[in-house]
Amino acid sequence: MNGDRIIRVEHLKKYFPVEKGFLERLLTRTRNYVKAVDDVSFSVLKGEVFTLAGESGCGKSTTGKLIVRLIPPTSGKIYFNETDITKLQKEQLRITRRRLQIIFQDPYASLNPRMKIGQSVGHPLEIHGIAKGSEKRKKVLEILERVGLVPPEQFMNLYPYQLSGGQRQRIAMARSLILRPEFIVADEPVSMIDVSLRTTIIDLMLDLRKELELTYLFITHDLAIAKYISDRVAVMYLGKIVEMGSKQEIFTNPTHPYTQALLSAIPVPTPERKKKTLELKGEVSSAINIPPGCRFNPRCSYSTDKCKKTEPELIETTKGHFVACYKAEA
């Protein structure tokens, strides 16, 4: 794993306009936005597993989709191998897509129900004119075997409905991998799979990382899985990164109050643990009306006046460990 930055994201923002009724639009001037991603910057190093962790609505999935250019950013820049891919269009974008792929959360929705497995997995090869006919078939069989679907011939002519969730997820992976991408965004790839089967998929991802020299952006709400798979973790809250660092740092030395609360809330499979869930007031604010100052302050037990006025920057406290919190700076 070398230190090259394969992905660099700078001040990325994605605001979704809120649809208003006709009358409301007439009577009010202001436009409301859901600030799904609100100024996010980070880098992913080649060969690592970088995790974006957080609860639902924090913007992690949106960030993932922004990076693979599924949705256009409102502002900010995305660099792939130091090339600016933010504004690429049409043909150039298509070529870039070969190297940036995404795996989705829902194995039941990510495969075309009317395409046979062989067709689904082989289609990317057709799209980019890489292989046809028997050559294509060979590559499809190869990749199916690689993801653990053996014997591969058996799966070629099946339809998705004939397979289980775990198998479908492997096929989705095969489809992403057949183009030999360099970077893969995995958006909650195991949250809809049976618990006892999750590690097979995760271990597969880790094996493939070594074999095919991949880099992953792993998106999850499950910090326990994040701990198992990640090299580095960034915790997101309401569209911003609040803490970022190596796995070691984040899990043994969580500094941001939100991270601490998050970690204390995770169920641990040991009976009668004398653990107290850290008190967190209220609920997550709406992403339309983000509170002024630090967006976490309404729920924070350590909130001060400064916290309510100005938003803290993401600052490096120890080497490689970044926190956006005034308490941590002290």
């Binding site: 989709k65 693979v68 599924l70 974008l93 298509r94 070529i95 897509r97 070969r98 940036l100 792929q101 995404i102 989705f104 959360q105 829902d106 929705a109 990510s110 495969l111 075309n112 129900p113 289609h123 990317p124 799209i127 980019h128 989705a172 489809r175 992403s176 183009l179």
Partner: peptide, 17 residues
């Protein structure tokens, strides 16, 4: 809106495809 259409876009498929 389905994931498999997004997936097709992500692999670079053109609109008519």
């Amino acid at each position: 809106e389905m994931a498999y259409v997004e997936a097709a876009t992500a692999t670079g498929a053109k609109g008519h495809t």
